[in-house]
Design a protein around this nucleic acid. Structure first.
Lengths: 163, 163
DNA sequence: TATTATTAGTTGAGGCTACAAGAATTTTTA
DNA sequence: TAAAAATTCTTGTAGCCTCAACTAATAATA
């Protein structure tokens, strides 16, 4: 009967529902979208995202640490990811003359070409996924809502290892 | 003409924005929430979810295949996940007399206790994560929207009732 | 300036998950 | 009812990622 208590519980259930949906939405959508990317271009989702982030950066290059923050990976995760991309010739290392600690990750021409080749089909798949099930307003609102969760907005993701 | 084309592009960008937010939201929130669960109870997120799903099932047990669908894991993923939970004594195997192919995953008393012990702090963390950043309506709408994405609602409409 | 703290990045070990292949057991079909 | 197909589950292998520990370089401080 206590109105307050039942409201309490409703809040908990609402959060739990949103949370499990988020987990499932991630699992379901990444499975769908990574399949095509992997089959057609041999790229994982994070590999694609890395190429894309680099392509948006000045001179197509970034410090590896910034790339990590941008992708929400640990520094070691970036090292491993770039290992593959470097082996494939899509990204190369570049030194930073003013700070010998940093190594840039720099998009190669092949990397840019690969990104362009993969983008068309990938973007189409992303659009299909969202637009076939959600209205424009729902999509917009979804992005806005997720943006408010901690660590999601902008490029200012915090590195989990040094936290 | 150009109006239509620019609307086209706006739709693409909207989808892309929602998609990258979803990726980042997953990465950011799972990191936050799994940390506590792992540190305090030695459970991964999927291990917790598995215990929870089992606890909601009749007699605290399910066919492994159904558990896989519910968690959006492959059958092999479930085998490996349950390996750990069985070794920890939280789940046990049980035979199905009517179909010798199936093995049930069955929650043990220790498993139920572990779930109960972990739930309180975990639920609090989930609530904090959402309610500190989103309004009740936003949370509600977020869950509803994600539910419309393919494969999210499918596992079976589990409306969690607080354990 | 010498020392200490911070930052950038890599490496080894290990966890989690998928995929492919295979074994055991129904179920379907001809 | 025998053969084919489908279902349930496990195992080997491999990819991707994290954490802990480490090196190297820079910044801050006494």
């Amino acid at each position: 009967m206590s109105d307050q208590r039942s409201q309490e519980r409703a809040g908990g259930e609402r959060c739990l529902r949103a949370w499990t949906r988020l987990l499932r939405a991630y699992a379901a959508t990444t499975r769908l979208l990574s399949a095509g990317l992997q089959a057609e271009h041999g790229l994982s989702l994070n590999a694609y995202e890395a190429l894309w982030v680099l392509s948006q950066a000045e001179q197509g290059r970034m410090r590896r640490v910034d790339l990590a923050r941008s992708l929400l990976l640990t520094p070691s995760g970036v090292t491993r990811l770039l290992e593959g991309l470097e082996a494939a010739g899509l990204v190369r290392k570049a030194a930073c003359p003013s700070d010998l600690r940093v190594t840039y990750a720099e998009l190669t021409e092949a990397g840019r070409a690969k990104l362009e080749a993969a983008s068309c089909a990938h973007l189409r798949a992303v659009r299909a996924l969202f637009e076939e099930h959600l209205s424009a307003e729902e999509i917009e609102r979804l992005a806005e809502t997720l943006d408010k969760l901690p660590g999601v907005a902008g490029g200012e993701g915090r590195c989990p290892q040094s936290g």
